[in-house]
Nucleic acid binder design. Structure first.
Length: 574
RNA sequence: GGCCCCGUAGCUCAGAGGAUAGAGCAACCGCCUCCUAAGCGGUAGGUCAUAGGUUCGACUCCUAUCGGGGCCGCCA
């Protein structure tokens, strides 16, 4: 139940009635009519802009129209009063029973409270992480991973059919580099002294892979040329790296539904099929690109290449799909990959890239628009950098020289819950400061703690209530303004879920939980001033049962919200 | 040179085209015999980078400019 949507329906019905009576002209669109929480609580519980939006097309003065609407709309028993304000707002005050019912619904619905029909029947593919299978995930990947997973959970909560997907870049030169690096570790495992030249990966994490390779093939590859072992070592090493990455993802609570191999597109005709699809639309041609403006590479010279006419779909220049030697560029399998997603019947695609891939967005948009005939929208989200600090000092490298801070480093230091929550308290396209000390601090300026603390307080109350052998009653007793304030916030939850899901913005959930926690902590303190407002009343089980419905509803929302963020609610803070 | 993102309180940041732009921190003043004070209440703090435009209405949309970051053929 989204009470805002319901009251909006009521307003629209009133408008329909005015049309039927000839008080408003026919043919008006209600599309821009909104019912929203007002910014200032003094303006009531909800406000509608209906009169202002409809004033011009209906030739009415906004305040007059608002007044007429006000007269009619109060026949809805849920609407206690309606007041014209400002330039033509209609401020609505709802009956206390509405908030009472909201609390009861939250308590009854539990984990389903806030579920939405928004995404019913819509299949959406969320592709994220997709890090090269050449090493452990580092902190940059972590943000994309957390963001993608939270977005997937959010969409799932809003009723979409969600597939989480990882694109394995196992088709390019970097997996050959990986294979050679593992081969060196393999020789090392056989007691040979090895040297890691430029263009190989020197990281320690490949040592066990070299040893595992030795255990598997013995000395079969020792002293042999690349042609004997490259392919097998590449497959072996890639699989080992994907195991490593799957482990990293699991450490922060992420499981993928599909791992899609780039390699599976080569030599199987799948790239050719996708490209021929574009060819049929006249979007593939052979040509020579202009040199890039500004900083021209030193060795630049004009080359004839096979190009995709992405400029037809808003890109700045056409993009090469074949190198001058005739082999595919990275973009070609990417086209085929997105073609495959479309063919699998997804209604919406979401790609999550690091900010350094910003230049790639337009060509992905172009490719998907061309391949799907504009049917399938794709939203490419970029996650900005994470600035790691400890006690205010920048942390850039881990102790092992030359390696980036890994996802494991972060999880080991602060735990998966803190890492996830903090990374979701920023919009994806804003840089994020992550201070190892601050994020574990137990104070109000740490939102993780603040929200968890509210939950822990409620759990404490609930445990005590259970000890009194009573259960919540859904007949909530609401008296104080602070109680109504909390109930109003709870009523906003279903609406917030829909807004966040539509905009692909899970950070809104984190901010909402902070606000809800704030309302709750305020309510908690009213119990200090006025013991009658406390949740637990030792000698009055009935009153207690009715009083704990509200904190129980808060618990439901915090728990559901943290579930979307992938954070475990805290039972206690000790 | 082009493209993308960002610019909101001293700091870190929210803000579905709506009213007098919000929160936390820092500053100042209050609240613990009390279900967890790890908390709550209050005061103060603003040219929403700048200039135009669209609109009944712009922090929000459009254009230009300034400032910060990222990216820019045969790497992925």
């Amino acid at each position: 139940m989204n009470i805002f949507a319901e009251i909006r329906t009521s307003v629209l019905e009133t408008l329909d009635a005015l049309v039927a009576e000839g008080r408003l002209p026919a043919g008006l669109s209600w599309g821009n009519v909104a019912v929203e929480p007002p910014r200032d609580a003094a303006h009531g519980d909800m406000a509608t802009n209906a009169a202002m939006v409809l004033a011009k097309p209906s030739g009415r003065a906004p305040r007059d129209l608002a007044a007429e609407l006000a007269e009619r709309v109060v026949t809805d028993p849920r609407i206690e009063s309606a007041e014209v304000a400002g330039p033509g707002f209609l401020n609505l005050r709802l009956a206390p029973a509405v908030w009472h019912d909201v609390v009861a619904e939250a308590v009854d619905a539990g984990g389903a409270f806030g579920h939405s029909g928004l995404g019913a029947g819509v299949k959406v593919n969320v592709e994220f992480v997709s890090a090269n299978p050449t090493g452990p995930l580092h902190v940059g990947h972590t943000r994309g991973a957390v963001f993608g997973d939270a977005l997937a959970r959010l969409l799932d909560f809003a009723g979409y059919g969600v597939t989480r997907e990882y694109y394995i870049n196992d088709g390019g030169a970097q997996v050959d580099v990986l294979a050679r690096s593992v081969y060196l570790r393999y020789l090392e495992a056989h007691g040979e002294a090895v040297e890691f030249a430029d263009g190989t990966y020197p990281g320690d994490y490949l040592k066990p892979v070299g040893e595992a390779l030795k255990a598997k093939v013995g000395d079969a590859f020792v002293g042999k040329g690349e042609q004997f072992w490259l392919e097998e070592v590449r497959d072996f090493a890639t699989e080992a790296m994907m195991d490593l990455i799957r482990g990293d993802l699991a450490a922060i609570g992420i499981g993928m539904d599909v791992f899609f191999s780039e390699k599976s597109l080569y030599g199987t005709g799948r790239i050719e099929t996708a490209i021929s699809h574009l060819e049929d639309k006249g979007l593939i041609y052979v040509g020579t690109l202009e040199p890039p403006k500004g900083k021209v590479p030193e060795d630049w010279e004009p080359r004839e290449q096979t190009l995709f006419k992405s400029t037809d779909y808003g890109d700045d220049v056409d993009r090469p799909i074949k190198k001058s030697d005739g082999s595919w560029t990275y973009f070609a399998p990417d086209i085929a990959y997105h073609y495959d997603k479309i063919a699998r019947g997804f209604d919406e695609l979401i790609d999550i890239f690091g900010a350094d891939h910003g230049g790639y967005v337009k060509r992905i948009n172009a490719a998907v628009a061309a391949l799907s005939g504009g049917r399938v929208p794709v939203d490419v989200k970029l996650t900005q950098l994470v600035r790691l600090t400890k006690g205010g000092e920048p942390v850039k490298m881990s102790k092992r020289a030359g390696t980036f801070i890994t996802l494991r480093d972060v999880v080991d230091e602060v735990g998966p819950d803190v890492a996830r929550f903090v990374m979701l308290t920023r919009k994806n396209d804003a840089p994020l400061d992550f201070d190892f000390d601050k994020v574990t601090e137990q104070s109000k300026d740490n939102p993780v703690f603040y929200v968890q603390y509210a939950h822990a307080r409620i759990r404490s109350v609930m445990r005590k209530a259970e000890a009194m052998h009573l259960d919540w009653s859904d007949d909530a007793l609401l008296e104080d303004p602070a109680e109504f304030a909390v109930a109003r916030k709870i009523a906003e939850w279903p609406r917030l879920v829909e807004i966040a899901a539509k905009n692909h913005e899970p950070h809104r959930v984190a901010f909402f939980l902070y606000e809800l926690a704030s309302e709750f902590h305020a309510l908690w303190n009213t119990g200090n001033e006025n013991p009658a407002l406390r949740f637990l009343h030792e000698n009055d089980p009935q009153a207690t049962g009715r009083k704990i419905a509200l904190p129980r509803a808060v618990e439901v929302v915090i728990s559901n919200g943290l579930g979307i963020l992938g954070v475990t609610p805290a039972e206690e803070m000790r």
